[in-house]
Design a protein around this nucleic acid. Sequence first.
DNA 1: ATATGGGTCTCCCATCATGGGAAGGTCAAG
DNA 2: CTTGACCTTCCCATGATGGGAGACCCATAT
Lengths: 141, 141
Amino acid sequence: MILVTIAQASAITGVSAKMIRHYESIELIKTPLRTENRYRHYSEAELHELGFIRRSRDLGFSFEDIRQLLSLWRDKARSSAEVKAIALRHVKELDEKAAALEAMSRTLKRLAATCHGDDRPDCPILDALNPPETAAFQCDP
Amino acid sequence: MILVTIAQASAITGVSAKMIRHYESIELIKTPLRTENRYRHYSEAELHELGFIRRSRDLGFSFEDIRQLLSLWRDKARSSAEVKAIALRHVKELDEKAAALEAMSRTLKRLAATCHGDDRPDCPILDALNPPETAAFQCDP
DNA sequence: ATATGGGTCTCCCATCATGGGAAGGTCAAG
DNA sequence: CTTGACCTTCCCATGATGGGAGACCCATAT
């Protein structure tokens, strides 16, 4: 059985030692072996779990998603449909977030395109941020 | 001078009362008039600032950006170039974030496309999350 | 007058993923 | 035996937002 310290595990998996301890505290991974000096030591299987988590994070999965993915991964009798469902749900979230960011970007690009960008103070960007809409509350007689 | 309570200001500007107080605490806006019972009361100008902040948030600007935008907005001698620079820098950030999300989405879509999504356990998504790369640490003699 | 319901105040805590840093224990090499 | 590089736990911070407690304040209905 190969056992490595937390710094080595970090170097191997690309997960910071800080985060490895954190994953343990939120019970995403089990507490590893501790030597009598309380140092953590990780087995190859645990390194694989850490690598799994890092790649899942790279794909933007939340810890809750990862918790489920890990559980499916460990379960040899899983159905691939469950994994796919999680993945596709996440794809939907990613697409929605990307679309929201792009909508903001488009709006701003459009505003910036009509802004002189010189020494003069008038600016369509500021105008857009301050439409007279707020005046709606003004008492109409 | 029209003065409204914090709940009314919230309804008018679309900023929650919680957030209005928060903006005050981080000195994004000045402390409004307080009546002797310590209730906050907002003038029309302050409502416009709150609306300005909300629209800036809608476009994804950070509080630090908004701090600068507000200051430029108040400054009648501003140059539109400064506003435009902030906007374009933000556009770049938005585009980068969107591209990152899309890259994740693309990867996941590709993986999901090759996953049966049935009762069988084998799943290319899980395989991708667990490549044997981690084995790099295994002692070679 | 008083009870009731609703608005407001401040203060603390939670989120999500991550990192910084302090204070102290452990170990190997010089 | 010192030095430096690890390791431990614990607390705090980020950014934007919300929840909730406990204590006021006020207007309207009884």
